[in-house]
Design a protein around this nucleic acid. Structure first.
Length: 788
DNA sequence: CGTACCTGAG
């Protein structure tokens, strides 16, 4: 290959380079091109054409700048559109504007082809106003110009405007072409507006225009986007019936749908079809197949396709590496990664992130961290937000909240911008009472980055604020939203239920019925719970029936547990038992736990024993339940040796059966363990706690049965939450400060009384989340209405 | 010149 061009005249040189660019590999063409003694417009055009064929838009733009700067050659009316096409496809509006200026300067601004290409850049890049102004300034227009301006409005989602220009176009005497119809059909299809699409299909054909491969592929990819399998396949069949040959894009639209649905059977069928139809050597189809098999957990099949492929690009490698990671074979993924680095396709930021995420998901954070650090040094690729997100999501998966939050902090200190993925993974980690401050910080971060316009982020904030004890903020965000989905409503309704605010929850449910949104399973769980809180058994029963009959939702375990609570709160224990006996699904532990709470609060010890035994059957390993059943036996006089259950697993750590409480204090978390002498609390407070400790005897039925923690503090020492209360009171005297405490076990009745007392005497609001419920104490009352 | 487009975080 070397010096192939030696001693040739410029004309022959150009011809040879042109041939290589057209038929050979891009790499070879570059080699020849660099050897040329004199590079003229045609040589540059050949190179740019070669890059265009391989969709290397950035390289096209780079070649353009080199051509202008190094050789001082200005493109002609054929080359300008090629470069502009690259600008449009890579979103490079800057270069587009620059070319716009050059075109005016060299008097080419009357060339329709060139003007259309400039217009297309503005339209594709979403600058519809700029496009409109340019369009208006064009003296000569054709159908292509109209198509571009319509594309511009479609790109920005302004379909009504696009439609208006479509009409205007006809009025001005330009008949919409097949492409024009395709542009509109495609846009409506991507938005899932299938009724409009079908109307347009009919109208188009009545104009004598038959759908082509683009039209059908637009339809198929529109259905595929929303995982509408049957419709997509139907279109594919109709297309074949109409004798329109599908192309690679048609196939990859379907394959990517089967991949995301993990429909291996259909995927295989299409694979076979593709081979028969002669797509066996197609790069894009191959890539989609590797991805499909990877997502369907068939890595061997994916690898087979991978190995058979004649050419591979970054998609091929990334999909295969991702497949190995997904399957848990990080080692194999890493081997392939090494091979990729030796190949002519270099790892991209996605490759590195895929591998980092793979190691994190498989619990190897050392390897992941190593790669994270090496990607910049060895790979010359800067970590992006997704790289950081991979670490955060990984740590959260292994319940390593502190590490995840640490990474998040580091990310912020290095000024890496968090995106909605970051926020959506970090927020749930802060959905507790001792992270209230952190949640407010995150909210600020969301506002700064304008992430609140994403509904999923807003929904998550509503949820997190509720769980961190700031339901007011949840409401504020809810009210500020212009568009709400069913999740938005469900989240706030559930938030009110958590806070014991039944009336607000029910009111909100009624508000929702005035929208066009239909309540779903989750909505009904919350609403039944709300009626339970309000002790409106009749209403609760009615909504349960309406759910089944009017909304055709079959009750699941969560609905049933809510129903048991509904009866239980109102003391209708027989109804609760009847309900359980008539359940069509097998009760789980949350059903029996609900019955246990009901019988405990209402003092029915036999029923409590019954529920406790069922609970133990389902969770024989659970030492806390074991202990509880023993206590119940003692209270009801059943001899302990009649205990049929086998010994539960031993507590690994004494910590597990101790009562712990946590409170947030100046950005750190203070922990308290029951019965300890607390150094953080001064002696005045300590004596105050002792004074506060109720002089209750060992609990009896009227006092509620003990569940987890020994009620008598004379035996076990002062409970942890009291230490936390004392600490909080001694830290600040401001009554405006509310206390937020998290506790690992269910509160005992005595501490519950103490909290009520403090909330009244010291005018302090207290939020306390125990293992059963969120208590909100104010003015001597608790939001749980003494039922928990 | 204008239309469909495969890989990574929820």
């Amino acid at each position: 290959m070397k010096h192939l061009l030696k001693d040739l005249d410029p004309f022959t040189e150009t011809k040879i380079v042109g041939m290589y660019a057209k038929c050979g590999s891009l790499e070879d063409a570059y080699k020849m091109f660099d050897e040329m003694s004199e590079r003229n417009l045609y040589a540059w055009s050949a190179m740019i054409g070669a890059c265009t064929r391989e969709r290397k838009w950035d390289e096209v733009v780079e070649l353009f700048y080199l051509m202008m700067m190094e050789d001082g050659i200005v493109p002609d009316e054929f080359l300008f559109p090629k470069i502009l096409q690259a600008c449009g496809n890579s979103g490079d509006v800057e270069t587009g504007r620059l070319i716009h200026g050059v075109v005016i300067k060299c008097g080419m601004n009357f060339q329709l082809r060139v003007n259309n290409a400039i217009l297309a850049v503005y339209a594709k890049c979403g600058f519809s106003d700029l496009a409109k102004r340019f369009f208006d300034s064009m003296v000569l227009k054709d159908t292509v110009s109209w198509n571009s301006i319509i594309t511009g409005y479609c790109q920005k989602g302004e379909l009504e405007k696009a439609r208006r220009f479509f009409e205007l176009m006809r009025e001005e005497g330009f008949e919409p072409s097949l492409v024009t119809w395709n542009i509109l059909i495609s846009s409506y299809s991507q938005l899932g507006k299938y009724d409009v699409v079908m109307e347009m299909m009919i109208e188009m054909q009545s104009c004598g225009i038959l759908p082509d491969v683009f039209t059908w592929t637009c339809l198929i990819s529109g259905f595929a986007q929303f995982n509408r399998k049957t419709e997509a396949l139907e279109c594919f069949e109709k297309m074949l019936l109409a004798r329109v040959q599908p192309n690679d894009v048609t196939l990859i639209s379907l394959l990517s749908m089967y991949a995301s649905l993990k429909d291996l059977k259909k995927g295989r069928e299409l694979h076979a079809w593709a081979l028969k139809a002669g797509f066996g050597e197609n790069l894009l189809v191959g890539n989609s197949l590797v991805d499909m098999y990877s997502k369907c957990a068939k890595v061997e099949a994916a690898r087979q396709v991978f190995d058979m492929m004649l050419a591979r690009d970054m998609y091929t490698w990334n999909s295969m590496i991702g497949g190995y990671c997904q399957a848990g074979y990080c080692g194999k993924a890493h081997d392939l990664f090494r091979k990729m680095r030796e190949s002519d396709v270099k790892p991209t930021v996605i490759t590195w992130n895929t591998l980092i995420s793979g190691y994190m998901q498989n619990g190897d954070d050392d390897q992941a961290m190593d790669l994270f650090q090496r990607m910049e040094k060895d790979g010359h690729i800067k970590q992006d937000t997704a790289s950081w997100n991979a670490l955060i999501a990984g740590y959260l998966l292994t319940r390593n909240k502190d590490k995840a939050l640490g990474i998040f902090r580091q990310m912020q200190s290095l000024c890496v911008k968090p995106n909605s993925f970051t926020i959506l993974s970090i927020l749930p980690a802060c959905a507790n009472l001792i992270a209230a401050k952190k949640v407010k910080e995150l909210h600020c971060c969301v506002l700064r980055r304008n992430l609140d316009c994403e509904l999923s982020v807003a929904n998550s904030l509503i949820d997190t604020f509720a769980k961190s004890g700031n339901i007011k903020y949840s409401r504020t965000i809810f009210n500020s939203l212009l568009a709400k989905d069913i999740i938005t409503w469900n989240t706030l309704i559930a938030g009110y239920v958590i806070h014991g605010r039944a009336v607000d929850a029910i009111e909100l449910f009624n508000d929702m019925s005035h929208t066009e949104l239909k309540p779903n399973r989750g909505t009904f769980v919350s609403v039944i719970s709300a009626y339970g809180l309000a002790r409106m058994v009749g209403e609760g029963n009615r909504i349960f029936s309406r759910m089944i009959e009017e909304h055709h939702i079959s009750p699941c375990l969560d609905h049933c547990a809510a129903m048991v609570n509904l009866f239980g709160r109102s003391g209708m224990l027989e109804d609760a038992v009847d309900f359980i006996n008539n359940m069509t699904i097998e009760p789980n532990s949350s059903i029996w736990a609900a019955l246990l709470t009901a019988s405990r609060v209402h003092g029915n010890i036999e029923l409590a024993v019954y529920a406790g035994e069922r609970l133990l059957e389902l969770e024989p390993e659970n030492a806390l339940i074991y202990q509880l059943v023993l206590q119940l036996y003692a209270l009801s006089g059943i001899p302990e040796d009649s205990f049929k259950a086998k010994e539960p697993r031993k507590m690994k750590d004494a910590k597990e059966c101790l009562g712990w409480s946590w409170i947030e204090d100046e950005n750190t978390v203070q922990s308290f363990v029951g019965g300890s002498q607390c150094q953080q609390i001064n002696w005045v407070m300590h004596s105050w706690i002792k004074h506060m400790a109720p002089k209750s005897k060992r609990s009896d039925l009227s006092n509620g049965l003990p569940v987890e923690e020994e009620e008598s503090e004379a035996l076990s020492g002062v409970h942890s939450e009291k230490l936390a209360f004392a600490f909080a009171l001694s830290k600040s005297s401001s009554a405006s400060m509310c206390m937020r405490v998290v506790k690992n076990m269910r509160m005992c009745k005595g501490c519950h009384e103490t909290a009520k007392f403090i909330s009244n005497t010291y005018r302090r609001e207290i939020y306390l989340c125990d293992s059963k419920c969120l208590h909100h104490f104010r003015d001597g009352h608790c939001s749980c209405n003494d039922y928990w």
